[in-house]
Structures are given as C-alpha cells and as structure tokens.
Amino acid sequence: MTEVQIFPEKLLLAETTKELATKLSKINEVEEILVHGPTLPKKVPYGPAKGKDNPHSERGKLQVRGEEVELNVQVGRVFVRVDESKSSLEDILEKLVDVCEETISCGFDIGQGRFEKKESSSEGNMGCEC
C-alpha cells in the first residue's frame, strides 16, 4: 500500500478542494482520498453564541466517483492511497502532480510516505473531537 501526501502552501478554498477531489478520483490508480485540515463546525462551539448555526462558505460537498461526500474542513493536506500494481510510482506521481498543478493556485509539496496509522492505538478511543 502506497500513500502520497499533497501539501499546499496555503489552505485550499472549497472550490479548489472540490475540483481537486473530482480530478484525483478520476485517476485509475487512486484507491482512497483523505482530506485533512482545521474543522469548520456546523454550530458555534464556544462563547455567548454557542449552539447557534455557523454558516461558512468553505463547507460544502465533494463529488467523488458519483458519490457525494460532506466537506467539513478547510483542506490543508490531502492523503492519496494509490495502487502501485497498476503502474509505477513515478507514473502515478506524475499524474498527481499534473492534477495539482492544474488545480492548486499556490505552491505545493508532494511526496510518497506512510501517513495513515497501520493499527489502531489507544489514542483512537479517547473521544478527541479536534
């Protein structure tokens, strides 16, 4: 299992994320896309306005392979799991870079590595809502 991280210099706007996710999902070797970034809560979490609705234009819906997925973060990293049995990692990276260059308006880093946890750990049971 090979993972690739796309790390833009700036947080992506919802429009960019939608476009990026749609284009990435069209690459054959892409098996999974995970977007990561600070949360955009649906309700105001603290203060005198706690519990009130929190309209936010950067929240939205992603279209991935015909399915609609909720976008509740402002994306700062994208992890992509790719299947190396279909083509070489260099070819896959080239495709990913092309998509990123077309979509992301700022600079970005891209690299292969291990980003997801291999096994569950006690941290996963702590109920952290961050």
């Binding site: 947080l11 105001v44 402002q74």
Partner: peptide
Amino acid sequence: RGATVHGHAVRLDENGMMFDALQRYK
C-alpha cells in the same frame, strides 16, 4: 475574535486570509 480564536498559526488560505472556523469575515 471573542471566542473560537483558532487560526493564528494556521496557513493562510488561497486568498491570503487567516483561517477562521466561524468565518467572521469574507
């Protein structure tokens, strides 16, 4: 930001704006 202040050390967005989970400004 009276509450929910998170954002000062987060990357700016593509428009150069500081992140605000409550989007007080556009």
